[in-house]
Amino acid sequence: MADRKDGRPAAPTETTIASADWDSRDLSGEQHERVLFVDVDMTEAAGVGAVFTDCTFRGVRFNASTHTDAAFLNCTFVRCGFFDATFAGCKLVGSMFDGCTYDLMKVQGGDWSFTGLPGADLRRASFTDVRMREVDLTGARCAGATIRGVDLSGGWLHKADLSGCDLRGSEISSIDPLTVELRHTIIDPYQAIVLATSLGLDVRDSPA
């Protein structure tokens, strides 16, 4: 399993829910703490305000599910599927992802700070207006992804592939152009100055 960048292990769990059919389940208001979910089908599940704390999800199918103002705090996701899943205004602070799939996953708003996505294939995912401070995207494959208006302050992006990625409006001061693939990456004029400065260039206005 991929490790959290601070070396902390996954939180221990106390109860287990295995092979349950939660297809189309209304998760609104549910609260789960220190639960191990194994091979649970959450396809098309939806809800507002659900809270999962220190939970581990193994082989859980979140396909086409919709989560609004939910919280997955310090959770661990192993080999889970997020095809066409939507997270709107959700908190996933401190959560860790390992070996998951993210095709067409949409994240809109919310706080994903300190989240671990090392090596994740996010090429067909989108993140907009999300707080992702100190996120671990080491070696992540984000070519062609949408990462707009995202706060990546202090993020780990070493060897990440951001080629063709739309980064407009995102905070990218933690990106090292020498260790991150940026070919055809879409950025705005301000971000161009940030990257030029990180390369040691002296950016000035043209003389009058």
Rank of each mutant, 00 (worst) to 15 (best):
residue 193 I to G: 02
residue 65 S to T: 07
residue 153 S to L: 09
residue 84 D to P: 00
residue 45 A to H: 10
residue 178 L to D: 15
residue 6 D to K: 08
residue 180 V to M: 07
residue 112 W to V: 00
residue 14 E to R: 15
residue 118 P to M: 00
residue 12 P to Y: 12
residue 185 T to K: 05
residue 53 T to N: 12
residue 168 R to T: 07
residue 133 R to G: 01
residue 104 L to C: 00
residue 207 P to K: 04
residue 41 D to Y: 13
residue 86 T to R: 09
residue 181 E to F: 06
residue 196 A to K: 09
residue 12 P to T: 12
residue 124 R to C: 00
residue 153 S to A: 08
residue 32 H to P: 12
residue 84 D to H: 08
residue 205 D to L: 06
residue 33 E to D: 14
residue 140 A to R: 02
residue 193 I to M: 09
residue 10 A to E: 15
residue 200 G to I: 05
residue 87 F to P: 03
residue 34 R to L: 10
residue 60 V to Y: 08
residue 160 A to D: 06
residue 5 K to P: 15
residue 54 D to T: 09
residue 151 D to I: 04
residue 127 F to M: 05
residue 196 A to M: 09
residue 136 D to I: 04
residue 197 T to P: 03
residue 24 S to E: 15
residue 82 F to K: 05
residue 140 A to G: 01
residue 34 R to A: 14
residue 34 R to Q: 15
residue 54 D to Y: 12
residue 4 R to K: 14
residue 148 R to I: 01
residue 102 Y to D: 03
residue 99 G to E: 02
residue 70 A to G: 15
residue 129 D to E: 06
residue 5 K to M: 13
residue 29 G to S: 14
residue 133 R to Q: 02
residue 108 Q to T: 02
residue 143 A to L: 03
residue 20 A to L: 13
residue 74 N to F: 08
residue 62 F to R: 02
residue 21 D to A: 14
residue 142 C to T: 04
residue 36 L to Y: 12
residue 96 M to D: 06
residue 202 D to W: 04
residue 101 T to V: 10
residue 23 D to P: 03
residue 190 Y to G: 11
residue 160 A to C: 06
residue 119 G to Q: 03
residue 22 W to T: 14
residue 14 E to F: 10
residue 114 F to G: 00
residue 61 R to I: 13
residue 118 P to E: 09
residue 14 E to C: 09
residue 148 R to M: 05
residue 8 R to D: 14
residue 118 P to R: 02
residue 60 V to L: 05
residue 206 S to P: 07
residue 73 L to Q: 11
residue 42 M to D: 10
residue 148 R to W: 03
residue 58 R to W: 13
residue 39 D to C: 11
residue 193 I to K: 12
residue 25 R to E: 12
residue 134 E to A: 07
residue 33 E to S: 15
residue 125 A to H: 01
residue 119 G to F: 02
residue 70 A to H: 05
residue 80 C to F: 10
residue 194 V to G: 06
residue 37 F to L: 10
residue 208 A to I: 14
residue 79 R to H: 10
residue 107 V to M: 06
residue 93 V to M: 02
residue 157 L to F: 02
residue 63 N to Y: 04
residue 6 D to E: 13
residue 129 D to R: 01
residue 170 S to L: 07
residue 57 F to L: 07
residue 88 A to Q: 04
residue 179 T to S: 12
residue 122 L to W: 04
residue 114 F to I: 02
residue 208 A to S: 06
residue 149 G to Q: 07
residue 126 S to G: 02
residue 116 G to E: 10
residue 35 V to D: 09
residue 47 G to V: 10
residue 38 V to I: 15
residue 99 G to H: 08
residue 33 E to K: 13
residue 147 I to F: 03
